[in-house]
Design a binder for these strands. Structure first.
Length: 195
DNA sequence: CATTTGATGTTCT
DNA sequence: GAACATCAAATGC
């Protein structure tokens, strides 16, 4: 299991790139044990980032989670429907977070399969979809990522640099010039298929 | 095909 | 009351 210290001591942008290829697992009431390989991330650098909820160190009940020490989950409801999963990074008082946007399932949720009996897609490309697959809801906001509900593992899977792209983040046009920052990282679709 | 829209609820002004 | 780190289905060519 990856320790909370990994998220606290490293630079957020470096982490967003380094998280590609790491394994994310969850064990929730609704879905049971499931997980997969992280294939897309976005970095949100709080105080200097207009696209972040915590821009200019805005403290509200919602953003309070991001001001805590790294290595916990920041989960919030988007557009009234989708639960978005972020990992809080950096030290206490610095509201950085990384949005997990896509996951290649290696351990499909057996409880969901048993219920729906439909085959699930293997690559969950979209932050709202992957939280649904893992059974993550706002209920797990501020959950430490070294517990037994949600955690990450480093299984020594290396994503070659030439298979990684970066570019502007999605859905943050309102953020003015900050919307253009290349703080989104993802693994090429062809390479994801070969994993 | 591309573009629009409806679902939906919490947060902050 | 408006805005919002989305998605799938419906509409318009």
């Amino acid at each position: 299991m990856i320790s909370r210290n990994y998220f606290i001591e490293n630079d957020t942008l470096w982490l967003a790139r380094d998280l590609l290829g790491k394994y994310l697992f969850s064990n929730t009431i609704s879905n049971g044990l499931c997980g997969g390989i992280i294939t897309e991330t976005e970095a949100y650098l709080g105080s200097i980032d207009k696209a972040s909820h915590a821009w200019n160190n805005r403290r509200t009940p919602r953003t309070e989670t991001m001001f805590q020490s790294g290595g916990i989950a920041y989960i919030y409801l988007c557009y009234g429907i989708h639960h978005l999963f972020n990992i809080v990074t950096n030290h206490h008082g610095i509201p950085h977070a990384i949005l997990i946007r896509a996951l290649k399932l290696t351990h499909p949720p057996q409880l969901l399969l048993a219920k729906g009996s439909k085959t699930l897609p293997l690559h969950f490309n979209g932050p709202g979809k992957l939280t649904k697959a893992l059974g993550i809801t706002t209920h797990y906001n501020a959950t430490p990522l070294d517990g037994d509900r949600i955690w990450l593992e480093d299984r020594q899977l290396i994503i070659p640099p030439q298979q990684v792209l970066s570019g502007p983040r999605i859905g943050v046009e309102y953020a003015g010039e900050d919307a253009l920052l290349p703080w989104r990282f993802w693994v090429k679709e062809e390479y994801v298929a070969s994993l």
